Simulated assay, not measured.
Amino acid sequence: MAVSYNRLFKILIDRKMMKKELCELADVSPSTISKMGRGEMVSMEVIARICLKLNCTVDDILEILPDSPEYGTDEKIK
């Protein structure tokens, strides 16, 4: 399963907010933001803090992508 945080980064662009500002606002480490940039999983606690501080929902900041070679995952859905 792949995750895309492109929606979050679009929100940051729309609000003219830098990733560093998000780190400070939501008390998230820069390494966690880097993980998100690489499409890696992060904890629900981090997602919740970001959503609360940006006044948005989980659907607004992330997208779960289907398993496929195109998204870097080719595991069969169980």
Rank of each mutant, 00 (worst) to 15 (best):
R49N: 13
S29L: 08
L65G: 04
Y71V: 09
L22I: 07
C56Y: 04
F9H: 04
Y5S: 05
I11L: 13
K10A: 11
K19W: 03
R49E: 10
A26T: 10
S34C: 13
D59M: 03
D74R: 10
K20F: 02
K35C: 08
Y71H: 15
S34N: 11
R38D: 12
D27T: 08
N6Q: 06
E70T: 06
K76G: 00
D74N: 15
V3P: 06
S29G: 07
G72K: 05
L62I: 14
M41P: 09
I33C: 00
V46K: 11
S68A: 04
S29R: 08
E45S: 15
L54D: 09
S34W: 08
K16V: 11
L52I: 10
V58I: 05
K76D: 02
M36I: 06
L12H: 00
L25N: 04
M41A: 12
M18G: 08
D27W: 08
S29N: 13
K53W: 02
K16R: 13
E45D: 10
C56A: 08
E21N: 03
E40K: 07
I77A: 15
P66R: 07
I47C: 13
R7T: 00
M36F: 10
I13M: 10
I11D: 11
P30D: 15
S31G: 01
D60I: 11
R38N: 07
P30V: 06
V58T: 08
A26R: 15
M18P: 05
E75C: 05
N6R: 03
A26L: 12
E70S: 06
I77G: 06
L62C: 09
D27S: 13
Y5E: 04
E40D: 14
L52C: 09
D74K: 09
R15K: 12
G39S: 09
V46G: 05
P69R: 12
C56I: 10
M1E: 06
L22V: 04
R38M: 07
A2S: 12
K35T: 03
D59E: 11
R49L: 09
I11K: 08
V58D: 04
S29Q: 11
